[in-house]
Design a protein around this nucleic acid. Structure first.
Lengths: 247, 247
DNA sequence: CAGTGGTCTAGACCACTGC
DNA sequence: CAGTGGTCTAGACCACTGT
């Protein structure tokens, strides 16, 4: 339980003021993890606002994980405190262009094959699925900035079998040709093996940042890709503000 | 410009159906980047719904970067296609506990000092700021899983000067004692130097994943921390679905 | 200056869920 | 079964911004 002395600062939309006021109570630990915060109806009465407005503030807090909402029970300050950070993975072409550098693309190998071994063990493609395996790299002003190792399912994307990928990066090509509906990412650090080191122009053993992405369309895996960046490549993840809607 | 044959599938809340229907138009490239999508008023009329419902769907699409909204002009399919991935950085204690392992913490060094050199060059702390420098590590079932190198501003958090951090990890301690209002993250890969390798129990030169976090309270930097994970530590970033509200 | 999205209201019904 | 949040409506006013 809690007191209801919420301070609205008068800046910006009402729902943001409410959001900020509640977020402040939480970050200042006046409302502590596990505490129930006032019901929507109580907040409406206390702040003399409509329920939709209060609801918008609370939903936003719930989206960001600051509170947990349960019907009939109420809303509670989240016990699992974690930090959210919105990671935006831009198309590499856009990223390079955004730095004012000249983008270029090089296909290294393109192989038709059947999924076997690691690809099936990881549960990515069913055994025997026809896939195209593409290895390529992306450069900024002639310097390698991204090595891409990609598998495309020919079952999900038959036309990929006819695409040489010699001039068009597979990422862009897929965006143009395949509607994906879902993506999952993982991130890790890897040491450059001799091949990778050569492609990225780093020393063997150098630390590199790898993003794995698996993309689905309608419950079928469309593509699986490893994007490997030189380690010094710093990816800015972005800011999060519990008080003001994140960005 | 666009046709208006939106197909609502009848599953779930109306605003999600609308969101899904529009997202599908975009991912299927029937509405292409730069295209104007129907006005709220048009969607209301076509779908026989209230504006608030349509608005909720469109705002959600705008939040996720699929569309851009401009007053007086309308809403447009985003031209900058990028992939959003929600990165959740849990408290390491929670993460270890979540894996069913025994969490432990070890302070390595704790030093009071003044900000100089790299810390001021990077614009993190003003030159001469009193800071506490803490190096510590976190273990799961006795195995190191995270090395932490942290600076805490005594200007922003004077009581940190009296805290030994021998039993309490500084991250948890700060969460308990300081209301932060903003955080910024960057991520990169680093090679383990001999010291780091020893602390993490990896070989010298091994690739490690590093998250840099800078935390503010009221425009003042509270803490700057490097969190370094062994490279094999894969961080799952999460799923994003343009059709269904991400999670 | 006209039209769009941004916000807000005062109702309403309902699903879920804790008691 | 009672009470909470989830959703929806049919209005309204206003800020901003293209034209």
């Amino acid at each position: 339980m809690t007191d209801l002395a919420l301070h609205l600062d008068g800046n910006g939309p009402l729902y943001e003021q409410i959001r900020r006021a509640i977020a402040l109570k939480i970050t200042r630990r006046q409302w502590r993890p596990g505490d129930r915060i006032p019901f929507e109806s109580e907040l409406c009465a206390a702040l003399n606002t409509s329920r939709m407005t209060v609801n918008k503030a609370l939903q936003s807090l719930a989206d960001d994980g600051l509170i947990v909402r349960r019907r009939k029970a109420g809303s509670f300050v989240a016990t699992q405190q974690s930090v959210q950070a919105p990671l935006t993975i831009a198309k590499i072409e856009d990223e390079v262009a955004g730095e004012g550098k000249a983008y270029s693309y090089e296909l290294i190998t393109r192989t038709a094959m059947r999924a076997e071994g690691k690809l099936t063990v990881a549960g990515i493609f069913p055994r025997g699925t026809d896939v195209v395996h593409i290895r390529c790299r992306h450069l900024a002003d002639g310097t390698p900035v991204l090595f891409e190792d990609r598998y495309i399912s020919l079952k999900a994307v038959p036309v990929a079998g006819d695409e040489p990928f010699e001039a068009t990066p597979p990422g862009s090509w897929l965006l143009e040709h395949v509607p994906w509906t879902e993506a999952e990412h993982a991130i890790c650090a890897v040491s450059a093996d001799p091949d990778l080191a050569g492609q990225l122009g780093v020393t063997v053993g150098a630390a590199c940042l790898r993003i794995e992405r698996r993309t689905w369309a309608d419950d079928e895996t469309v593509t699986f890709v490893n994007l490997t960046y030189p380690g010094h490549h710093r990816t800015l993840i972005g800011r999060f503000q519990p008080g003001q809607r994140g960005g």
